[in-house]
C-alpha cells in the first residue's frame, strides 16, 4: 500500500473518531440516555480507525483495478456501503436492561457516515493527480 493512501486512511480514521466522540457526548447531554454499556470511547476510536483503514485498503485495490476511474468507483462504493450499514443499528436487539432503545439508532446511524465524511473531506490533500495552476 502506498504511504499516501495509508496516511489518508489513518488521518480520516482519527478525524472520524474525534467526530464520533464529540457526537456521542452531544447525544448524551441532549437526551440523557446512557448507552455506555454498548458504546465506549475506546470502541469508537477503534471502529473508526478500523473502518478507514479498511477503506484505505479497498481504495488501494480499486486503484489497481480501475486506475483513472478509481476515485469514482471508490467514492460510490464507500457511500453505498455507509448507507447500507445503517440497517445494523436500526435492526439491533439491545440487552433488555438498556432503556430507551429507540434512541440508539439516533446515536449510531449518523456515526456510520463519519468515516466516509472524513475520508472525502481530506481527500483533496491526498490526490496524486492534482494539476497545479500557477497564476
Amino acid at each position: 500500500m502506498e504511504k499516501k493512501v495509508f496516511l489518508h486512511g489513518l488521518i480520516a480514521g482519527i478525524l472520524s473518531a474525534i467526530a464520533s466522540i464529540i457526537y456521542y457526548r452531544v447525544h448524551y447531554f441532549a437526551f440523557e440516555v446512557d448507552f455506555s454499556k454498548l458504546v465506549s470511547v475506546v470502541g469508537l476510536i477503534g471502529i473508526n480507525i478500523l473502518s478507514c483503514m479498511v477503506a484505505a485498503l479497498g481504495y488501494w485495490f480499486i486503484k489497481k483495478w480501475f486506475r483513472s476511474k478509481a476515485d469514482i468507483v471508490f467514492n460510490l462504493l464507500f457511500s453505498i456501503l455507509s448507507f447500507a450499514s445503517i440497517i445494523i443499528p436500526i435492526a439491533a436487539k439491545l440487552p433488555l436492561d438498556v432503556q430507551n432503545p429507540e434512541l440508539f439508532p439516533g446515536l449510531t446511524v449518523p456515526m456510520h457516515f463519519f468515516p466516509a465524511l472524513a475520508w472525502f473531506t481530506i481527500a483533496p490533500f491526498f490526490r496524486t493527480n492534482v494539476k497545479r495552476v500557477e497564476s
Binding site: 436500526i90 435492526a91 433488555l96 432503556q99 430507551n100 432503545p101 429507540e102 440508539f104
Partner: peptide, 10 residues
C-alpha cells in the same frame, strides 16, 4: 415494554 429494539417497541 422493551424488546431491545426501538422500532419493535413502537
Amino acid at each position: 415494554i422493551n424488546t431491545g429494539n426501538g422500532m419493535k417497541n413502537t
